[in-house]
């Protein structure tokens, strides 16, 4: 069981400059509404349980272990098994998972990932809001991306994390994520950019990285272990940090900078993956929650081409089989048939 200090630390991560409990709950509501799942999770009831858990965590009314326990109990009550999935899911809709692996929804690893990701998003968004307060912007105009938690197999963020331990699959593209996102590597090796710089959105864009969470704040992607550190004005000037088009710090901060967010609170538009959900149930869910149900980016990217290719293969197979059937029919219709 986590201590009160951990719970307090969770509370401290929320933007105190915003003040009221109502704003904190609004942020938490927006964050939990943006539930990101893999394609295997398609149970609205479980989605609702996650929402409730995050609500409790963000409000400081529960701890991490209790949240994980609650989700595990919810899955048990729904009859979920790694081998069979949810009992009332269409056959084959949820592929069987090996128990205790990341694909197993009820596994400790998977539940940890769900809760940790949601909590990390709350922290990141809170830090972003706190950091973009007007007074704060002047004193600390930039963010530096650093590693907060070591990872057994770290992603290649700035070019210095790739090592012999890096899986071969990740060696295919040795370029640092910072470069892929359009950033310039500072000679010091530090990953620094002004607050609101588009690179922060690119780092968290699923169009660039399959594991990204479509946010412009840490953790940017699942289990990244990355965080922001605010960079003071003097430090930013010494490093020569400028805007994406060469703007000075003051020029940049005087402009409005659209980010990935499009809601009043600045939280990304709530999206939910409900792949495999009964359409009628989906409509009820949309109406009651206000969540806009869309295709997950993980499933729509490249999906159009895949569907067309599948349809073309099926069409060709049908034509071939039809020709075989006609030949068989003629052969069987001979004398004495």
């Amino acid at each position: 069981m986590s201590t009160a200090a951990e719970i307090a630390r969770i509370r401290d991560l929320l933007p105190t400059t915003l003040g009221t409990a109502e704003i904190r709950s609004q942020i938490a509501a927006d964050i939990r509404a943006r539930s990101v799942f893999s394609a295997r999770v398609g149970k609205l009831v479980f989605l609702d349980a996650i929402k409730m858990v995050i609500d409790e965590l963000a409000a400081g009314r529960t701890d991490f272990a209790t949240a994980r326990w609650y989700l595990a109990e919810s899955l048990r009550e729904m009859g979920y098994t790694p081998e069979g999935g949810f009992p009332d899911a269409p056959p084959g809709e949820v592929p069987p998972a090996i128990a205790a692996t990341l694909q197993d929804l009820s596994s400790r690893r998977r539940l940890n990932l769900i809760v940790e990701t949601q909590l990390a998003l709350v922290r990141g968004r809170g830090q972003q809001l706190r950091g973009t307060h007007r007074q704060r912007l002047f004193e600390f105009p930039a963010w530096e991306l650093t590693r907060a938690i070591d990872r057994r197999v770290p992603r290649n963020w700035g070019g210095r994390h790739a090592s012999a331990a890096t899986p071969k699959s990740r060696r295919v593209d040795p370029r640092p994520r910072w470069i892929i996102a359009g950033g310039q590597l500072h000679p010091s090796g530090r990953l620094v950019a002004l607050k609101g710089d588009p690179i922060w959105g690119e780092l968290g864009a699923s169009g660039n990285f399959d594991d990204a969470l479509d946010v412009d704040y840490p953790p940017f992607c699942f289990n990244s272990g990355m965080r922001w550190i605010e960079v003071g004005r003097a430090d930013a000037l010494e490093l020569g940090i400028r805007g994406p088009n060469g703007e000075s710090i003051d020029e940049w901060l005087s402009q409005d900078h659209p980010t990935l967010v499009d809601t009043q609170s600045g939280i990304p538009a709530p999206q939910a993956s409900v792949k495999g959900i009964d359409p009628e149930l989906r409509k009820v869910f949309e109406k009651s929650s206000g969540i806009r149900v869309v295709e997950t980016t993980a499933t729509t990217k490249g999906n159009e081409a895949e569907v067309r290719a599948t349809l073309a293969r099926r069409k060709a197979a049908r034509a071939k089989r039809m020709a075989e059937l006609e030949a068989q029919a003629i052969q069987k219709g001979g004398p004495g048939a």
Partner: peptide
């Protein structure tokens, strides 16, 4: 397929 069958009958 009819003509092909008919041709044999």
């Amino acid at each position: 397929v009819g003509p092909g069958i008919a041709a044999q009958n």
